[in-house]
Nucleic acid binder design. Structure first.
Lengths: 93, 93
DNA sequence: TTAGTATATATCAGATTTGAGATAATCGAG
DNA sequence: CTCGATTATCTCAAATCTGATATATACTAA
């Protein structure tokens, strides 16, 4: 008898402190997930992608972990190495 | 008898060295333009937006100049202050 | 289980971005 | 043109990100 994830999430977010934390972290994870998707599309390992980008496997791991909010410069390089293009838009909220 | 801009641009980009420079700079300007559009939507001055973001007018000017490739952290703050949302995607090139 | 591959984490130096203040340049209204 | 507001540029310190190496953990196939 476990609590469904969505229910658990909803309850957690009802707590203002938790929500604040979540809102702060969510974008970082979304970006990380976007990067990961792009790499998975190519079928490259982190090490292979790192080589194409001229960096190290650990740097790729860090990017995909959501540990940092990367610079757009890095996003562009990552995109190029995964034969992707960066679509960036600031639309009305 | 001036040369139409598009023609001028096409000729310039035919030069590999120019093209390389252009490709490197274009993303920065696109991002800058995106930021500017978002601010114009709100009708805020740089100084007013700076205050909302908790930074200085000169920092906003720099962001909108395309001088740097900003961090996604900055993009998110800029978006919030302009009541925008950041849409970021790495799609197949 | 073990070996081999892939990914994650930790640390630290170097690079880039950011914040702030001062000042210059630009723009628009009157 | 002049004033006031807005935007641009410069400089430097502080914050953050990035690269690299070493090492740990996780995963898969045999």
């Amino acid at each position: 008898m476990t609590i469904p994830y969505e229910v658990f999430k909803a309850r957690m977010l009802a707590n203002p402190d938790v929500k604040r934390e979540y809102d702060a972290l969510a974008p970082a994870f979304e970006i990380a997930a976007e990067l990961l998707r792009a790499r998975k599309r190519t079928g490259l390992s982190q090490a292979e992608l790192a080589e194409r980008m001229g960096t190290s496997q650990s740097a790729i791991a860090r990017l995909e972990s959501g540990e940092t909010l990367p610079s757009t410069k890095t996003l562009l390089r990552y995109a190029e190495a995964t034969k992707s293009k960066v679509e960036l838009r600031l639309s009305v909220a």
